[in-house]
Design a protein around this nucleic acid. Sequence first.
DNA 1: CCAATTCTGTACTGTTCGGTATGCAAGTCA
DNA 2: TGACTTGCATACCGAACAGTACAGAATTGG
Lengths: 200, 200
Amino acid sequence: MSPTTRTGRPRGFDAEAALDRAIEVFWRQGYEGASLSDLTEAMGINRPSLYAAYGNKDDLFRLAVARYAEVDMAYAKEAFAEPTAYAVIEKFLRANADALTRTDRPAGCLSIQGGIAGGSDGGRVAQFLAESRLAGEAALAGRLARAIDEGDLPPGTDPGALARYVMVVSEGNAVHAAAGVGRASLHATVDIALRAIPGL
Amino acid sequence: MSPTTRTGRPRGFDAEAALDRAIEVFWRQGYEGASLSDLTEAMGINRPSLYAAYGNKDDLFRLAVARYAEVDMAYAKEAFAEPTAYAVIEKFLRANADALTRTDRPAGCLSIQGGIAGGSDGGRVAQFLAESRLAGEAALAGRLARAIDEGDLPPGTDPGALARYVMVVSEGNAVHAAAGVGRASLHATVDIALRAIPGL
DNA sequence: CCAATTCTGTACTGTTCGGTATGCAAGTCA
DNA sequence: TGACTTGCATACCGAACAGTACAGAATTGG
């Protein structure tokens, strides 16, 4: 009656290792941009093996996200264990920044890239969009540099860093808005974010 | 010699109005998720008319983004005209929050949604990802609520709003990281973001 | 009214997509 | 050894994709 006794030919690949490869493909190319051919090639298995082991593409993606949350987001749980709120937040944001820029992993976060990425075109569209966003950031940095000259920002301020922070808040709010978060909540976030702006 | 003299059958649709409809489709469904059939149906034109008027799908998308930047991001230029840096930033973030939640437009920002969105599946994947992100946000809010009880956050603090702010910074950094921004810059953003966290 | 030019509508191209039917290989248990 | 169970490999399915050929319709200039 042992439920693990399944006679028959044993699986010829490591399902967990193959799932890790799938995570990278989804991470880099997004859900829609990752074709079954991309996935099976990276995982080193055939299509029927994928369907037998994980279900369909959708199921595979959910398994990938779940494993990503467990493995690659483990720092969140560690951060929560810090003694104070400030320490929790700082540790979370620091570890997050490190995780987003690991050299042995795709840049960014699967939870966001899984939707972005672009995929089949090799990320041309995503790159185009990123460039136009960064152009806006540069424009804001220019305006803030002028503000330093005009004396309404402290002399030591880094205009590029401050502009980047503002755009980060804007982009984060955009992600939230797309997820259905309402206007009042967005403004509440702005309330908090503005506290970080250096006064005169 | 007048260059506008183009004899022949006149175009049967307003190219600018049709482009506006295309913007909404790309905004809602993303670049990959917007099929030519979706686009032509929304624009009220046939495929050959689209190709004749705008080029190919890629060209149409770039035109859409350009027009979006001009029309829907006009508030940025207005914000830049404010007299002080703080006013520039506040006006930008406020107008941005309003723009992200206009009831007569898709939620979010074309520049981000153009990559996200999900498209053909009606946004099922995007919704799944959004829910898992919001679950993490709720977990953080719970941890911060405990911090208020334990006295390391001011009593009046809204733990949900603070958690949302932290996740906004995290998501914005993720978008930046995916665009190629490096680790040091992300930490510089965290430096600024942490200034908004209420001290003991 | 006719020729030239441009736009529109239908119907099609080749390709790629997610998903699967089928026959064979590789093991376990009697 | 032989029945049984399971995984693997090839080859395929219908559907959807971006893009286009072609013929007819609408307009201008003569």
